[in-house]
Design a protein around this nucleic acid. Sequence first.
DNA 1: AGCGCGATGGTAACCGGTGTCAATCCTGCC
DNA 2: GGCAGGATTGACACCGGTTACCATCGCGCT
Lengths: 338, 338
Amino acid sequence: MSKAKEGKPTINDVARLAGVSKKTVSRVINRSALLNASTREKVEAVIAELGYVPNPQARALALRRNFLIGLIHDNPNAQMVLGVQEGILSAIRDTEFALVVRPVNRRSPDMLDDVRTFLEQQRLFGVMLLPPISENDALAQLCEELGVTYVRMGSVRLDDDEHMVASNDREAVAKAVAYLVGQGHQRIGFVAGPEGFRSAAERDLGYRDALERARIRLDSAIMAQGNYTFESGIAAGEKLLAASPRPSAIFASNDEMAAGVLHAARSIGMSVPEDLSIIGFDDTAIAAHIWPPLTTVRWPIQAMAKAAAIKLIDPAEARDQPSHFLSDLIERASVAPA
Amino acid sequence: MSKAKEGKPTINDVARLAGVSKKTVSRVINRSALLNASTREKVEAVIAELGYVPNPQARALALRRNFLIGLIHDNPNAQMVLGVQEGILSAIRDTEFALVVRPVNRRSPDMLDDVRTFLEQQRLFGVMLLPPISENDALAQLCEELGVTYVRMGSVRLDDDEHMVASNDREAVAKAVAYLVGQGHQRIGFVAGPEGFRSAAERDLGYRDALERARIRLDSAIMAQGNYTFESGIAAGEKLLAASPRPSAIFASNDEMAAGVLHAARSIGMSVPEDLSIIGFDDTAIAAHIWPPLTTVRWPIQAMAKAAAIKLIDPAEARDQPSHFLSDLIERASVAPA
DNA sequence: AGCGCGATGGTAACCGGTGTCAATCCTGCC
DNA sequence: GGCAGGATTGACACCGGTTACCATCGCGCT
């Protein structure tokens, strides 16, 4: 408050004012046990008075590790990315960690180089990988090679528990389809996601599992593939609804495509859910804001992200963190009994 | 590749192998002009061979500034937040800057303390503030006090150009409403946003401007207030459509409420846009994925965020960056002539 | 009284860069 | 050939922390 010439107070200032050495101040900051109580109090008083906060860059340099965790993603689902960011933040709030984000372009040929530069340049403590990029094994290997710890989030277990937090999309979809069966539906269409997405493959398997368990035969006439977009959902819907006999229910591998199916149904005069039941996946904002609100499957994203972040930053608690999560079926109004 | 015992190569390793001093290597890294070409080449060769990348923490310490820019927000619109993140990233890609995000809770009483702790602890180079929290002057003052440069994004100019990148919501709404007038609508309803949001106030003003210019009298029977949610849009829609005479068009202050109005209209048997034209604001994912696709107003978010980031990190280019942006009217299918 | 020992706290080096300033090397020019 | 002066380069301190290791202190003990 006196001659503090612009600059923030440093550990030296604290030491001088408290009449102790830097080292002692450092001990106070790091809560070292071998410290006389009165010394500690004296130092703490000075710290409070000066409003001293240790310089993170200096700390990082001396400790040879920093306190930044990265989030690398190419996920088009804004809702999900933000959910992850909030989940991570809830884990690192009240710690000295901070979250650095890095959207990348999956299709870019130099995606890997881009990530490499990023990791080398920033020397992050660790990174989280979101799908679909988290399915890229080369990326995980790159982290390994660069000595950056990582945790992947995904729709299926792709790595050991230490490096993975996974939902079980296959099971979740099977449950959703079984739910349709439970509502009396026997002719259930399916809109698959694009190739190359692990989630798409898993959801496909879940659909097949459910039909098999219900002893319903697969019929390729009521199966179509989309690419997770609204438009592809429309196209898929048109194909499926042209089949004869028509499906009485359709499971779409994500909400956007489900919205597209809904649109296709409506444009040929069918009403939902009276004439057609629809289930989506992801519980994005769209799901709740179309009419009728979409029944869908939801990853517990925040919880997953939080668990992932804890795995990254706190080895002690890491083993208590679950690596597998169950998705919930969110029942809204797009499903009716057959 | 030989005895590199785990650790990454440092400037000392490079200096030793190149047979020059640290300082010279430093000069090469920083592209200092006063350097003999042959020396530079020699050093660059060693750098390439070793795969040397300067340690950002050490740099930050020595330079007394770091290369982290923060994004502080409490914005519920995921689409927008992600757009901003991408905009910022496009500005800092190929620089050594990184983006640190910090979602906060607007309603929390210790929001300011939370931000203060964050800023003091991380010693960021600068921060960007997103609405609605960017409207909080105390926050801007806090940044000032802590010596953190900041740039605010918002729907109206709240600060000098150096610290502000603004759209002009008032003008944008006026244009949108004028567009409805141009389509022959004379009875145009309005759904306002919640109090306390500057954007809501501006959009309200824009509506009034447009009516005044068109010499249409305000009628509180076809004005309602919502809180930017889908549900509040339904309620507002019900109120407005119960008025007599009914409005032939409705402007809603955001897309979610517009979707709500659409739903309200449909549930009383009106079809859109035949019986009712609707315009929203924000161009969120919902706008494109409901039926009919919503005509709406869009902030050029990425461009704004990019300009804001450049203002933050590059004083030289900062003055070339615009501080004001015009929003675009995105014409889809929810508007028809009266 | 002298001694050993655990509890505290200090000193100096170091983490990996950058700034300052002086030393050295050229070069042209008288 | 000698010298001024700009172009290069290096030595060294320093940024603000931490660690390794040493010094001191107070105490109980013989």
